[in-house]
Design a protein around this nucleic acid. Structure first.
Lengths: 187, 187
DNA sequence: GTTTGCACTTACTTATTAGTAAGTAAGTTT
DNA sequence: AAACTTACTTACTAATAAGTAAGTGCAAAC
């Protein structure tokens, strides 16, 4: 079964977003799975190998998200997007991009393109979504869609990080302001 | 002399913001200073001790910043604030709050209050600055000053992180949009 | 029914880490 | 001049890390 492999990726992802890439060991994963250290190395020889698969896992999750919300209105798509960060925050974790940004200088060159691809996909999807919302007058904002997408992503990314330090209230405030920043004024 | 102690704090700070707290060792600092491992332990017995001093160093730097820009207009204060992030980005680093957010779950309880104090001071200073800018009509924005401060900080914090992954252009875009978001419309 | 491949375990190596204990050389105080 | 302090070095320990090599049990293929 590919179940163990899948579980290793999921646990690795959780640990990265909870403690950072350099603060967990294969032993941590092995313990959570009830297997031995070497079993993790069997599936992912090096930590860089695992990290690449975690990045690919996020790319796939993003594709699934796009697919799942395909039929929704631009507004509801943005709501769904914000909700993913609400979930991340509720779990006491941070987002993958934010976590890996700190560790960026310590990871091997081979893994970086996957993270770049993931971040780019995120920005592109939100840019397109905002663009369509603007055209349909469902959404309203002054900046260019690409700029607004960057602002929203950076707000939510940092909100989960700041929530850890200064508390959940600030996450809520940022979240509401993000939504407020794209709502048409007449409604 | 307190020079070595001071240097250890500065190098520690740089390493935290370049690689993350869990990715550097006392050996790294010792090497950069041309001393031995144990010399660092002499000044800071544990890594948590050093981290507390790094946090205090940032609190002091923030106080100095407030003092240095006291006489400036609200607009120029915000420009000065943004410039600190421009510098951070140019150095290829991230901000202390952003770096430590990722490592939050791995640091000892004793260091957290110092980070919380630093983050709170940052938010409070910007909130007050925005408030005054609003009153004097030098600045213009829709959200409450506290909310706007959170948005600006989260934008800049995340911008330095995203710049690592997706490039400096996105930092520039976010930076300009932040400024644009508080400028009076008639100018 | 023997072989092959998969998913591991056992048992290890090597490197790095935080941290300590004891010693030392150069000043500083008394 | 003797005692003390400061800022280290030398030389460690103990723990944990990533990674590997060889072996094992088991299910499926031939």
């Amino acid at each position: 079964m590919a179940e163990t492999k899948e579980n290793i990726i999921k646990i690795g992802d959780q640990l990265i977003r909870q403690k950072g890439f350099n603060a967990f060991s294969y032993h941590d994963i092995a313990q959570k799975l009830g297997v031995k250290n070497a079993a993790i190395h069997y599936h992912f020889p090096t930590k860089a190998d695992l990290l690449i698969e975690v990045a690919k896992y996020h790319i796939q999750k993003l594709k699934d998200f796009e697919q799942d919300n395909m039929g929704l209105s631009a507004y509801k798509k943005v709501i769904a997007f914000i909700d993913t960060y609400v979930k991340i925050n509720a779990e006491g974790r941070v987002c993958f991009v934010g976590a890996m940004a700190t560790d960026w200088e310590t990871v091997e060159d081979t893994v970086r393109p996957y993270m770049q691809q993931m971040a780019t996909m995120l920005i592109d999807w939100l840019t397109t979504t905002l663009q369509k919302g603007l055209e349909s007058k469902e959404l309203q904002f002054k900046e260019q869609p690409h700029t607004q997408a960057l602002l929203i992503i950076s707000n939510l990314l940092a909100a989960t990080q700041m929530a850890r330090i200064t508390g959940d209230e600030n996450f809520e405030i940022i979240k509401n302001a993000v939504l407020n920043g794209i709502k048409p004024h007449n409604k």
